[in-house]
Design a protein around this nucleic acid. Structure first.
Length: 458
RNA sequence: GUAGCCAUAGCUCAGUUGGUUAGAGUAUCAGAUUGUGAUUCUGAGGGUCGUGGGUUCGAGCCCCAUUGGCUACCCCA
């Protein structure tokens, strides 16, 4: 017999957990909708060629690959053997695995836009709330199966898109009571300009990887890492000066304008940041020049949403602009900008800060106790019209001792127990017990709907 | 992929330098209560101490291996 168990990094969601998750998901979805984004869903599996090479070497390793079927079919044996040899040599082979679980929602969006380019209107504003899978080692706040909520705008270069997305971050976190969130913002163009000053474009990746670690490992270690990656002392000094930029958002922008006075792209980046800052007055947004974000495809403004410091959860959302995403799928020059919320981490944060509202833990409305055959038949008759009017409930499945039935009602968090014993039955009455307050009263069966409406507002 | 910690009842965990029959809380079931849950009291069932080897007169405890979980690194939501 197989031992019951779950794959590493996956979870079951009980009804209680689901009530909290639904609360988060519905909040996000509603805000996406009021900004007039429209929904999209894509398959859990994609062709592996769609995903490979989009997330960097590290990302490729973390993609869950799906084994092809029919590998042992005699006509496939040779191909299969060769494919496995490639795998063992570290190369992904489509002879063995030609499909994979999606790793995020952005690349599937790009794939969708490229495929449907003639059928969609630009700007295309879509939201997508679905699971993604990563073969990462699980730990606090990190799962192998988790849910992302993405909102993206495809087909517009306007910086109002960035501002709108930043405002969505604010609205969602405010609605969830997560008022002390932080939204960090930076610009890839600014980082690219810095790289140009310090050794050239090909140094962009090692540069961003190193400075991204600043608040974790400190300036000395960052310096070490930069030197190890071939940056000269002089270049390291420039980078240090760049990382030293402090003050308000406006002060940071002023300093950046000075530094990049001769770099057109750098100045463009600063201008973009300035614009976003100007249109996000209500948002708790701050320019963070160490923010890099790993994903290779960002080209402009980048975002990272962080939980309040004391919960130590790090990033609960991220996003940015990618000016040529669909280019990877043959449709050139289509810009996009998007953000993502990590529901599972937001859940952990709300749990830790005790921010789930009490009123989401509702149970079913009414349990009719089963105290006899004709009594329970009567209960079923009474329940029918109630269900038609959206009251939820059931008749206890068998005739047993009353305390057992009451206990069931309690455990399942029913609002009311409806008791029809021989006495009530003969009088056309029903005893209604409010399980939250313990009060009970005998009412006419014909009054059931009015009675429940009074308490449950439906 | 690398490192550290952990694994005992359905669940959360005690368990003394290695020493008789491995405990508690909780959950489940039964009873106190033949028409009243969440609170009270009584009782019962429930264990190959993750798995496989080893040391020892003797192992839940020590050693090795293995599997799983957690945490951290890399990276990320």
């Amino acid at each position: 017999m197989a031992k019951a168990g779950l794959p590493q990094g996956t979870r079951d969601f009980s009804s209680e957990i689901l009530k909290k998750r639904t609360y988060i998901l519905e909040t996000i979805k509603k805000i996406f909708q009021v900004y007039s984004f429209e929904p999209l869903e894509t398959p859990a599996i994609e062709n592996i060629s769609t995903l490979l090479g989009k997330y960097g070497d590290e990302g490729d390793k973390l993609i869950f690959k799906v084994l092809n079927n029919g590998l042992n079919d005699p006509k496939n044996i040779e191909k299969s053997k060769k494919g496995f040899e490639d795998l063992l040599a570290g190369k992904v082979s489509e002879d063995v695995t030609s499909r994979a679980l999606r790793y995020d929602l952005t690349i599937p969006l790009a794939r969708f836009v490229a495929m449907n380019f003639n059928n969609i209107y630009l700007p295309f504003k879509r939201y997508q709330i679905q699971q993604v899978w990563r073969a990462d080692r699980p730990q606090r706040g990190r799962y192998r199966e988790f849910t992302q909520c993405d909102a993206d705008i495809v087909g517009s270069y306007s910086l109002s898109c960035e501002a709108e997305l930043a405002n969505i971050y604010h609205d969602v976190f405010a609605a969830l009571g997560l008022n002390r969130y932080e939204l960090k913002v930076n610009n890839r163009k600014v980082l690219a300009a810095l790289a140009r000053k310090c050794g050239g474009n090909n140094k962009l990746i090692p540069l961003t990887v190193a400075i991204d670690k600043l608040d974790k490992i400190g300036i000395e270690k960052v310096e070490e890492e930069l030197k190890a990656n071939g940056f000269t002392d002089e270049q390291v000094q420039i980078i240090k000066k760049f990382l030293d930029i402090t003050g308000t958002n406006q002060q940071k922008l002023d300093t950046l304008n000075e530094i990049f006075v001769n770099d057109e792209e750098g100045l463009t980046g600063v201008k973009e940041l300035t614009n976003v800052i100007q249109h996000t007055k209500e948002v708790n947004i701050s320019i963070d020049l160490t923010l890099a974000r790993g994903l290779n495809y960002y080209t402009g403004v980048i975002f990272e949403a962080k939980a309040p410091k004391e919960v130590n959860m790090g990033s609960i959302g991220g996003g940015g602009r990618y000016d040529d995403l669909t280019g990877l799928f043959g449709v050139k020059n289509i810009p996009g900008v998007g953000i993502s919320f990590g529901v599972d981490r937001i859940y952990d944060v709300l749990e830790e800060l005790n921010l789930f509202p009490k009123n989401i833990f509702f149970g079913p409305d009414v349990l009719f106790l089963n105290l006899g055959e004709s009594e329970s038949s009567k209960s079923m008759e009474l329940l029918k019209p109630l269900r038609k009017r959206n009251f939820s409930g059931e008749v206890f499945h068998e005739q047993t001792k009353i305390d057992k039935q009451m206990k069931y009602a309690d455990r399942k968090n029913f609002n009311f127990a409806a008791i029809i014993g021989p006495e009530e039955f003969s009088q056309n009455m029903v005893t209604m017990k409010n399980l939250k307050t313990g009060e009970q009263q005998k009412i006419l069966q014909s009054e059931l709907f009015n009675f429940l409406s009074k308490f449950l507002h439906k």
